[in-house]
Amino acid sequence: MSNESVTKQELAFQGLREKIPWYISAKDAVLRNPNMLIGLVFISIVVVLALICPLLIKIGILRDPYIFDPLNRLLPPGRSPDGDLFLFGTGPLGRDIFSMVIYGSRISLLVGLSVAILAASIGTMIGILAGYFSKLDDIIMRFMDGIMAIPGILLAIVLMAILGPKVENVIIALTVVDAPRTSRIVRSVVLTIRESQYVDAANAFGASKARILFRHIAPNTFAPVIVQATFLFASAILSEASLSFLGAGVPPDIPTWGNIIGEGRIYFIGHSNIVILPSLGLFFLALAVNMFGDGLRDSLDPKLRGKT
């Protein structure tokens, strides 16, 4: 067969076999999906601001969010009578809301990222165990059902009441709430993979249980888990804020979005900027992460496009 007769399909097939580097396919996926791009750009801006925030405070571009200034309390956005600029106004203790919002993104991102990583990895381990070892399945999943029957925010509040108000404890509480949900998804994926032909083939070749688990099953759960992790990230950001808002989260003096809103809520009428501006930060970050997650799911599994 001469070279000229190589069909388009064969070329495409060769292209597949050449293995496209991940960063090229990632770039393609992001550029093909404008929502994902918008989400990614917004997340990147927040991450960069959060990272350089201490530097901005040090060189004086941002006010220190821990400085209490009773003379300048509850100022509306704009210039104070002394001519100082407070872009978002000041809170009930005279703290600059703009720098509190920028600084607060650090806690939101920290909690969101940690919960996403922890809940996704613990949930994956539990899900793989339950899905692969049918003897464990019933015990594990009934236990997970029991945890999931307690509404998330209530379970988190109770755990916080027990553990005490600390950022680490918020992460632990939200991980306990979210890991069972991940395990359910992973388990259902494992149940399907377990019946697939390549697992049968591996069994027939005499592969060990561990090899089947780690070489054949675990890698195939990664795509849904990564997608799930982005949604966990968004919901953890919102839950952390809810906890702080209810007074059961991060200690109240640490400027987080939930704490700023909680602190400002009794001043809402007349000083709505204290509540609305951090809420917008929360909303746009959660929206951006969800948009990114939607795009990620579409590109990792085109069959799921448009599904929840």
Binding site: S242, F245, F268, I276
Partner: peptide
Amino acid sequence: ALTGYAVPYFALGYVVIF
């Protein structure tokens, strides 16, 4: 629907009250 996912209940509550 995408907005509904991301909106914090309490913030929406205050805006609606306002």
